[in-house]
Amino acid sequence: MITTDDVAFLRSRLGVKALENASALELKPDTLIGDVAALRARYGERAPALAETVHCRRRAAGRLVDPQHWLLTDEALQQATASVVAAARAAEIARRFPGAVVHDVTCSVGAELVELAAADGIGAVIGSDLDPVRLAMAAHNVDGATLLRADALTPVSTADVLLADPARRRGGSRTFRIEDLSPPLLDVLTTYAGRPLAVKCAPGLDYGTLRARFGFDGQVQITSLDGWVREACLWTELDDGISQRATVLRTSGGAVRTEEVTDRDPDDTRVGPSGRWIVDPDGAIVRAGLVRHWATRHGLWQLDPKIAYLTGDSIPPGERGFAVLEQVPMKEKALRKALADRDCGSLEILVRGVDVDPDQLRKRLRLKGKAPLALVITRIGSRGVAFVCETGVRAD
């Protein structure tokens, strides 16, 4: 376990050089024992901290900006907000509360603080945490923030906006239960009742129960990054009356493309037979319950009113679509024949609304051809159906 003395060493001139030396080692499972022994021979008790820091920096590539200058622990990295997502939230806070003083009451090693401090339109940034090691790391990682050691459930500032990220891991596994967060989610909401607050939660959070049983009446924002749903953010302050919101972030060549869908957008899409393409909406849109809103925006329609698959004659920009070749009854004999007729040798299987194990089905279909295809399995009414499709393509 890294200590505050370790952090002080890592921040020193000798520590910086030691990290450079440690970075030259492989530190892979088959070399770890020897590599750590070499570090221990040279740096004594600091060897584990050096190895963990280098390992975390490598794992943080693509998640944090310039991770080779960060001080991290394994646990802190697992919970750290990706830089692109944190930057989007900082920009959102600046838009909603221009000139605000923002206080991250669970700042950890500073993944959110870095983006808050860099955002235009934010007046000042405060970070606090109970863990002295993480605070010491945040002092290294973040410029321009005031840091305090404090319990998240003990208000210590009069900041205009508060940000919290309760820990979502218990016993080494991720939790989606409201009552398992630390500090408890309901305690955080109660402690800062009446003040603008944003709480980052796991994307699988049961926000329906939070609204129905616990009276949460703010905005739920589901955010994805490059096709992966990353988080649910609870905003106690509504924005233009929006209660449900999906934020889809996609990166390409260093640029970030953002699409926002809300429950105030039109949702008068229709239900009908398949068009040229089948589209599986981004998970943030599905999780936020905004499939019909997104479909209406892009001229798509539903195959079934209760299933998230959409269809249409074009693919929305940045999304992946599957060109429909034929519709087949959800019977293995019919599927096997249809795929054999098209010389199918490899098959991507997508499933919604039907209890099918794609891996087991693929084995039973006994594919022997050469062509790659896709199979979209779903339910229309009470019938299971399958669409044999070309492999997915992504629109520009």
Rank of each mutant, 00 (worst) to 15 (best):
1 M>L: 11
2 I>C: 04
8 A>R: 15
13 R>M: 11
15 G>I: 14
21 N>H: 12
21 N>T: 15
22 A>Q: 03
23 S>I: 00
25 L>T: 01
27 L>F: 00
31 T>R: 04
33 I>G: 12
40 R>H: 11
58 R>Q: 07
61 A>V: 06
64 L>Y: 01
71 L>H: 05
72 L>A: 07
88 A>G: 04
92 E>V: 02
95 R>F: 09
95 R>N: 08
98 P>T: 12
99 G>L: 09
104 D>R: 09
109 V>A: 00
112 E>Q: 13
114 V>T: 06
117 A>H: 00
118 A>N: 12
119 A>Y: 04
128 S>A: 14
129 D>Q: 08
132 P>R: 07
137 M>G: 02
141 N>Q: 10
142 V>L: 05
146 T>S: 13
146 T>E: 14
166 P>N: 14
168 R>G: 00
174 R>T: 11
186 L>P: 03
189 L>Q: 07
191 T>P: 02
194 G>K: 04
196 P>N: 07
197 L>K: 00
210 L>T: 03
216 F>G: 01
228 W>E: 15
236 T>D: 08
242 I>E: 10
253 G>V: 11
258 T>E: 09
260 E>L: 13
266 P>W: 12
268 D>G: 12
275 G>P: 03
282 D>R: 02
296 T>C: 13
299 G>I: 00
302 Q>M: 15
307 I>P: 03
315 I>V: 12
316 P>L: 15
319 E>Q: 08
323 A>M: 11
341 D>N: 14
343 D>H: 09
344 C>F: 07
349 I>Y: 01
354 V>N: 02
361 L>V: 04
364 R>W: 04
366 R>A: 11
367 L>K: 03
371 A>E: 00
372 P>L: 11
380 I>G: 02
381 G>M: 12
381 G>K: 10
383 R>C: 01
386 A>R: 01
388 V>W: 05
390 E>W: 00
395 A>T: 01
